[in-house]
Design a protein around this nucleic acid. Structure first.
Lengths: 262, 262
DNA sequence: CGTCTCCTTGAGGCAATTCAAAAACCGTGG
DNA sequence: CCACGGTTTTTGAATTGCCTCAAGGAGACG
């Protein structure tokens, strides 16, 4: 009952205090597993024993309401890491949209490693912060945006993943079905279709087959989406996460901003 | 480079490796600050230098869209900790609904402490996991639920905070305005009002003044909300978060569930 | 080439919004 | 304690954006 790759994992404890462990390295030591399209990697409510790093393919992450409605809370793309910040159970089901390759690592052990390795600790926090940011963005989308804005936002969100420097038209694949998009955007299939059609008619978007998308005018599309300009949005600030650690400046006792008092 | 309050804080480094530091303890060493109703603790886009623990009062956490729409992504109640999992900027504005008392602690230093203290590390992860869980829940609510279900869910969510063992009718305060609720639930003021009125007419809810709520039939309300039974819901599993950190048992190499292959 | 599934478009209905006005609440000052 | 003005909440009527229901079209696969 031992993983074929666990020999290399055993190297971690020795090197951990000084080594610059990253999630990439930690997961890289594990065997590649496969999950076929339509099958689940884990289910909502299961004991959350492992974290996962996606190698290839696409996962849909969803919860089911008592009466059967499905809410897709996110998608997991290659490079994404799942399951770092749960209590003891998975909060959603992770199901393969396409055939998926991934690696798993025991959560407890991962967090134990992080205790000894600031680099890894930092890396984990960075991933979790990204998840939280995505969730925030989605709450804004679902709570405030119209159907067309949601679809436009969704397209831009995917465009962003392929890199911003891209030449126009920006092109990418959307392997998920219209139903997946609908359940993610809080709309129906038909409404998603109509929104896409409108964007096509406006000359902002075109498609090749069902899954290949071209964005001909990202800037204009951003206005459609209720976002700031595409280039400026996400992130308006550089990404290097937390600045270098140093001691804090003196506590000034300044009232701070906006009505602080002691 | 010395904190005014840092005399006590300086004790941390020495004791950290063995000490059972918790967020409660760490924040407890800091001065209590005040923020008056209507003022902000921090703004979206500000450099996220500090984390905050709420002592008393209520904060609304929101983002503003370019055209002025406001999305409230959450509320912060006494005991809640804010700002643990951001990149380098705050993702939302935190504004006092009522007068608020809170303590702040520099994020960098907090994470540095966590590196040395598994207890604290664990505590931080638990809080972040809670944030993520709340965000998930909200995405489901905003994406899939009707107006009445959203309002019912909101009331139950607040009831849950006062403790579940409560005798019926469960009573609690909702210090925020109807507009806050609306912007949180992705509805308009009027729709929130109408939904509350319906729940009152159904005998499930009553109110005293504008902010005091009584739930006369939580179980029935739960069905209204598209949740499982109130007692069973949230959390169906015990809360003690992650089990104590230790090395993992032997890797079992079981293929897991759902179509995994090597 | 046929079948199945998924996608797209159209017509009509409904839940939530918008616009409007009355009622309740709150703090203030008499 | 009560009267008053401003704010927030509640209710009503009309509108609309999205959903539902329905049918036709396109793509995927054996």
């Amino acid at each position: 009952m031992v993983y074929s790759a666990s020999a290399s994992v055993d190297h971690f404890p020795g090197a951990s205090h000084q080594a610059k462990l990253t999630l990439e390295i930690v997961f890289g030591s594990r065997v590649l597993e496969f999950c076929h399209a339509g099958h689940s990697v884990f289910w909502e409510g299961d004991v959350a024993s492992d974290a996962f790093m996606i190698g290839e393919g696409l996962l849909r992450l969803y919860r089911i309401l008592p009466d059967g409605r499905r809410a897709i809370t996110g998608f997991a793309f290659p490079g994404d890491v799942l399951g770092l910040a749960f209590h003891d159970r998975y909060l959603y089901t992770a199901e393969a949209v396409t055939d998926v390759r991934l690696r798993r690592f025991p959560r407890r052990r991962l967090h134990a490693l992080a205790t000894d390795c600031p680099y890894l600790h930092h890396d984990i926090l960075r991933v979790i912060a990204g998840e939280l940011e995505a969730a925030q963005e989605q709450m804004v989308l679902l709570g405030q945006k119209s159907a067309e804005e949601r679809v436009a936002s969704f397209l831009l969100m995917n465009a962003r993943r392929v890199g911003k420097g891209q030449a126009v038209p920006i092109s990418f694949d959307l392997p998920m079905t219209r139903l997946d998009m609908a359940d993610y955007l809080g709309l129906t299939i038909e409404t998603v279709c109509r929104a896409v059609t409108k964007l096509k008619q406006a000359g902002l978007v075109s498609m090749e087959g069902r899954h290949k998308v071209f964005l001909h005018n990202p800037a204009e599309l951003s206005r459609f989406a209720g976002l700031d300009d595409f280039e400026l949005a996400h992130p308006p600030w550089p990404k290097p996460a937390l600045p270098p650690v140093e001691t804090d400046p003196i506590e000034t006792g300044e009232p701070g901003r906006g009505g602080f008092h002691q």
